[in-house]
C-alpha cells in the first residue's frame, strides 16, 4: 500500500516537472515579419567600429556601422541591444550560467557604457513590428553589424536606426 502511494506521488511529481519543461521548450515567439528578412542579411559586413567607440564618437544624425554581440530582444518589435565585443559574457568567463547573455558577471555601469540599442527601421523611423530573434539566425550572443543612422540623447544612450543588419 505504501509503495503504491509513493509510486502514485512520484508519478504525479514527475508529470508536473515534465509539463514545466514542455512549457519552457514552447516559449512563444512573435511570428517573423517578412520585411525583417530584407534588413537582416548574411552578406559580408562592411568595416565597423565597436559599441564603446560609437558611443564616444558618434552624434545624432551620423551614419554608423557598429559591431557587437546581441544581448537582449524586445518581444513584438525589431529591437535588440548590442554589446561591445570587449565585454565578456558568462560563457566566456567559464561560469555555468543558464543565461550567459545577461552579462551578470560584468559591472552594470561598465555594461551600460558598452551597450547600444539597434532598432530595425528599414526605410521608416519607427522599429518594425515582430521580434528579430531567429531572423537570419540572429540569437543571443551572435555577432552582428548594424548599419544605419544614430540617435543619441543627453544621457549618452545611443540608438542605431538600422537599415541593414549583417549577421556574422
Amino acid at each position: 500500500m505504501k509503495a503504491l502511494l509513493m509510486v502514485v506521488g512520484a508519478a504525479l511529481v514527475f508529470a508536473g516537472c515534465g509539463d514545466k519543461k514542455a512549457e519552457v521548450a514552447k516559449a512563444p515567439e512573435a511570428p517573423a515579419n517578412p520585411a525583417l528578412a530584407k534588413i537582416v542579411v548574411k552578406d559580408p559586413a562592411p568595416a565597423a567600429i565597436g559599441v564603446k567607440a560609437a558611443k564616444a564618437d558618434l552624434k545624432t544624425g551620423d551614419k554608423a556601422v557598429v559591431e557587437g554581440k546581441v544581448k537582449d530582444f524586445v518581444e513584438g518589435a525589431a529591437v535588440i541591444t548590442l554589446v561591445d565585443l570587449s565585454m565578456k559574457d558568462c560563457k566566456q568567463r567559464g561560469e555555468g550560467c543558464e543565461t550567459p547573455w545577461d552579462y551578470c558577471c560584468e559591472d552594470p555601469k561598465a555594461m551600460t557604457a558598452a551597450t547600444a540599442t539597434v532598432q530595425a527601421v528599414g526605410d521608416g523611423a519607427a522599429p518594425l513590428p515582430g521580434s528579430l530573434k531567429g531572423v537570419g539566425t540572429i540569437d543571443h550572443l551572435i555577432t552582428v553589424v548594424a548599419e544605419g543612422k544614430v540617435e543619441k540623447d543627453d544621457s549618452g544612450n545611443l540608438v542605431i536606426k538600422a537599415s541593414r543588419i549583417y549577421v556574422k
Partner: peptide
C-alpha cells in the same frame, strides 16, 4: 495591452535607466 511593446522599446533605448 499591446502598448507594452512601445514601453519595452522605450526601456531598451534608455539603457542608463537600467
Amino acid at each position: 495591452p499591446s502598448d507594452l511593446t512601445a514601453l519595452q522599446v522605450f526601456a531598451s533605448s534608455k539603457l542608463d535607466l537600467e
